[in-house]
Design a protein around this nucleic acid. Sequence first.
DNA 1: AACGTAGACAACCGCCAAATC
DNA 2: CGATTTGGCGGTTGTCTACGT
Length: 306
Amino acid sequence: MGRPPCCDKIGLKKGPWTPEEDIMLVSYIQEHGPGNWRSVPTNTGLLRCSKSCRLRWTNYLRPGIKRGNFTQQEEKMIIHLQALLGNRWAAIASYLPQRTDNDVKNYWNTHLRKKLQKGQNQDGVSLVQSVPKGQWEKRLQTDIRMAKQALSDALSVDFSTDSKDSNPSNESTYASSAENISRLLESWMKVTPKPVTASGGCGGTDHRTNSAETVTHGSFTNGGTSSSDGETTPLRQGLDSFFSFNNSSCNSSDNVSHGSVSVEERNASFMTPENVVVFHDETKPNLGDRMPLTLIEKWLLDDGLF
DNA sequence: AACGTAGACAACCGCCAAATC
DNA sequence: CGATTTGGCGGTTGTCTACGT
């Protein structure tokens, strides 16, 4: 006998979420933290299946998600990673902490695929940094070797000892990009500022890819490139532009309410001390699950992206 | 102003591995 | 250990909006 059913499919609502539904979901997650999605529809009264709630949260409501306005660096990174990893959008998105897999996938399908096709049709050369034919394949093979090496390296490393510096993606914190919801949250926050419990957003325990044991409170959260502080090589500065949004920790502060400021402004002011509610990225895989970002840095540097 | 079309993005569907009983 | 459910993922569809005619 397994678990009880997730939810009956009778009378469930489908289609676009209303602001009211968003508020209900966000309020619940504020209270209990993400996870245990099965109980979300029941406890919130939402006529949505647990899966829909989870998707809505991870793809839209989760704090810190940046939507639209892909930068050139992000674009190039997606192109490179897609070439290396294929359509593994979750893996690709894990290197772009502010982006969801759905967002990356959509951007690829609506922008980059066409762009690449167009670029190749026009001059027969890939848009990716004009790497000559053949050389690109060689590079890909090299990258695969690097990935294999990285995997073996990763397997031989005890991440629990150095996760503070090398494995920050274990606990990402996010600022909301859904401004309407953020405004709603802002008013909500003013009334009931409440930290997420340990079993919830801060080092949640019920997520397969982000176990509580790997969470190191106070560590950075931006995908493996940021050191604790002070290390500002040009490379790092470049990469920091990717990840600057979430240089916060579980114990430091975070911001889920941003009023009407832009996403960038919100991200810039992400660590104000008065912020109290912290959400953690419960979906980003551990570094051990993927190629260390330093390899990506090297790879991108080789192509002169930064 | 009305209609048709294309683009962008949110949401759903179905599959699968992992977790749970 | 097998049955069952959950949650994650990638592909696809649906809906909304902008633009052109």
